[in-house]
Amino acid sequence: MSEELTAAGGRTDRPDGIRVDLQLIANMIDPGSRVLDVGCGDGSLLYHLVNRKAVDGRGLEIGQDGVNACLRQGLSVVQGDADTDLKDYPTGSFDYVVLSQTLQATHRPAQVLRELVRIGRYAIVSFPNFAHWRCRWHLVRRGRMPVTENLPLPWHATPNIHFCTITDFLETCAEQGISVERHHALNDQGRIGGIRGTGFLANLLGAQGVFMLAKGD
């Protein structure tokens, strides 16, 4: 399984076993910590974290196929819904709560973000940036909803119901009293392209944003 599509459409390209954007998230996580991966998909990140970084890892995944794949690998994953099931987890019960390429598919993203920073000391959130220049190009020149390598599905078939831009996301975090601890903007290849994670250029050139969040004071 060297190539597959995620909800955000990011291509699986695993020099080290996992997608480069997942590797970036993995790098943000301390070995041996407690991690909850919300929307863990087939468990690629979780498997990596459990086996390479000895984390005490758990997953939450809505899709049957993803859950089955995780459980077959021996990962601790619950079939459930980020919109409804996060409220059960105790406050501060994990060091990191990861939400990778899932935020835009939730019904109540702001509430989900609040839950993430409640449950985890830190939340790590990645999402496709709808203000990336390719998306803008689709809308401005062609008058069409963007269909790009990162967002491969047409509007009627995409699970993504709450697209946002990096600028929108940062504004929402501020409104929700969530502080941004670290920020990265990734290019089309899912790599850090030498730009800051915030600001005009990030919003224009970042295909996706990766943010480490915490509950504000």
């Binding site: 049957q64 859950v67 995780c70 990962l75 601790s76 994953v77 619950v78 459930g80 099931d85």
Partner: peptide
């Protein structure tokens, strides 16, 4: 089963759950 899973999650227990189709 889900009610039990919710109770276990409330304890941050190590739990897996799947509904087989």
């Amino acid at each position: 089963s889900r009610a039990i899973v919710h109770a276990l999650n409330s304890n941050a227990a190590n739990v897996s759950f799947v509904e087989i189709d």
